[in-house]
């Protein structure tokens, strides 16, 4: 029901941020995620950052995957 994609905040001015998504720069509003900081990855939905991505959790998920694969291989 809702598309949202991850992008990295490359600049912030007041409540507006520039977010880079794989080379595409979008201006997004930080009204809904005022805690977002420079270099944070955020989920962007309809021109708004709606959540700060937890990089540790993201890595953890991928680590889990890796383990799963190694486990399967061995």
């Amino acid at each position: 029901m809702c598309l949202a994609i991850p992008g990295k905040i490359v600049s912030i001015e007041d409540n507006l941020a520039e977010v880079e998504i794989a080379g595409v720069i979008r201006r997004v509003s930080l009204d809904l995620a005022p805690e977002a900081k420079l270099n944070d990855y955020v989920l962007v939905h309809a021109g708004f950052a709606i959540q700060v991505i937890d990089e540790k959790e993201a890595l953890k998920t991928l680590e889990l995957f890796k383990e799963l694969m190694e486990h399967e291989v061995s």
């Binding site: 598309l3 994609i5 998504i21 794989a22 080379g23 595409v24 979008r26 962007v44």
Partner: peptide, 12 residues
């Protein structure tokens, strides 16, 4: 290209 894919993801 990555940027094209990203722009597509953004616009749906």
């Amino acid at each position: 290209r990555d940027q094209v894919l990203a722009a597509c993801e953004i616009l749906g």
